[in-house]
Nucleic acid binder design. Structure first.
Lengths: 273, 273
DNA sequence: TTCGATTTGTTCGTATGTATT
DNA sequence: TAATACATACGAACAAATCGA
């Protein structure tokens, strides 16, 4: 028996990588096309956060690809934090729970805390909510006009009962209609959860730039520092689907008792023997 | 025809996930066992940095697993930065080239530089090389005794022709015998490349903790700052195979012209539609 | 409690495309 | 051109987790 003959000889739409595009997955490898297609569906809220995607079997049938191709497409979105797999249950759209915040977006921890130790969720106190104009720097980060209206929120964050971090958040007012101080204060969960639930805006990634600066007097007062004391300043831009900027945030951190932890690993099974 | 009958009905060593361990891959899923096995081989320098691993076909045959399982094991090591795939050529052991330094370990960039812009490699000037004792903090980080002998190196790093960063590097003297100032100064490539080529010690990951501090007088002089000016201090611990600490490093960064960039993404095809 | 249906997780094997030498 | 190596794709079978009947 010279090896099993091609028991499934033909009838497939394509052999392996296909030079032409299939029905509607775009060009390039199939799994990338499917990945883009799924990302687009997620951006359009076809499956809202927290809900389950169709099973891999169904997705494979609907898109006319094999289940292995579906898995590879989903793998990338799971690695990017947009989807969550649960064996025996299904694949779910990631939601902005406190857990996700801690894992993906909040990097300030108690000094000398082990990298793998459980992190503490900060408690937030809203200090101010104002309407303003973007200005040059924020405008560039948010890809809006410098004169565009923005909302500016100031928060004081506590860790271990201590004021550690002052946040200045700026978002385009046009994207968050009717957002007001009351709504912010009575929210449950994180601000990103509010963006998600009230406005259908998902933050999917962020970049942060850190520098050391002399603490402004007002912030020093809030953090219990002397004016001019060194503080860690973090400028974060948070992006949504399609790399569209959603939020500009500047944080000032009192690093006497806390610090910024940049691990850069811990995803999937540890690849170090 | 009720679907192709199982044309390959038996003879496999195992069916799917196997409760028992195979030849020597340990417990758990096969691909994890293989991943650990490969990591161990890499740690033992079975294939030196820059060299090619056996082909996936060969690895599959040697370990008596399918090629898909081999690919999954290698995928994780590639994601961790220990291996590099090159289509048509093979899979290679990652070496500590300047490129790898920039991508995985060096995060200081010019202010407001786009996140995706090409980064600049710093030029290094060695300021001092001394023998010393570890002391409490370093000892804990390096998992050695506080009285253990260490080597301490001070470097001044320039970016865009400007002194931007002061480095204080500490390693256990026992692991780097006969390392001296002359060898450090005449090295080509990065310090991690020297660890690799001269001592067979690979840095595979690092954690960094950032805080803002008042600049010590001596460092201020070197960086062109006034004593007490805010500087960004980075405490890095670099780890080798098996999460063994290799190096303790404290960096002081002048963040008037440069900043620390924490992207946390950009690996693999972008999962955002 | 047991059992079956459903869904993801793991493994195998094969075929073919694409890049390199 | 031929051989080799990784990349993509398909499909099948079984394991493990989950949930509800």
């Amino acid at each position: 028996m010279p090896a099993t003959p091609p028991s499934k000889p033909a009838a497939r739409r394509r052999a392996a990588t296909r030079p032409e595009s299939g029905p509607g997955l775009g060009d390039g490898p199939l799994y990338l096309g499917l990945q883009r297609s799924l990302a687009r569906s997620l951006a359009e809220r076809r499956w809202p956060p927290g809900s389950a995607l169709p099973s891999e079997t169904r997705l494979a049938a609907e898109h006319r690809v094999s289940i292995g191709t579906v898995r590879k497409a989903i793998d990338a979105l799971v690695a990017g934090g947009m989807l969550v797999r649960r064996q025996g249950r299904g694949t779910f759209v990631a939601s902005h729970t406190p857990d996700r915040l801690l894992f993906h977006f909040f990097h300030v921890v108690a000094r000398d805390a082990p990298a793998a130790s459980p992190r503490e969720l900060p408690s937030t106190r809203l200090l101010s909510f104002r309407h303003a104009r973007a200005g040059a720097g924020v405008a560039e980060a948010l890809a809006i006009a410098p004169a565009a209206r923005v909302l500016r929120v100031e928060n004081l964050l506590h860790l271990q009962g201590r004021a550690v971090l002052f946040d200045e958040i700026t978002v385009a007012a046009a994207r968050f209609p009717r957002l007001d101080r009351a709504r912010l204060e009575r929210r449950e969960g994180t601000i990103y959860g509010l963006y998600e639930s009230d406005y259908g805006i998902d933050v999917v990634r962020s970049t942060e730039r850190l520098s050391a600066v002399a603490c402004p007097a007002r912030i020093a007062r809030l953090l219990g520092l002397a004016p001019g004391d060194p503080v860690l300043r973090i400028r974060r831009v948070a992006y949504g689907w399609g790399d569209r900027p959603v939020e500009h945030r500047v944080s000032w951190v009192d690093t006497r008792t806390h610090e910024y932890l940049s691990d850069l690993w811990k995803r999937g099974p540890d690849p170090r023997g």
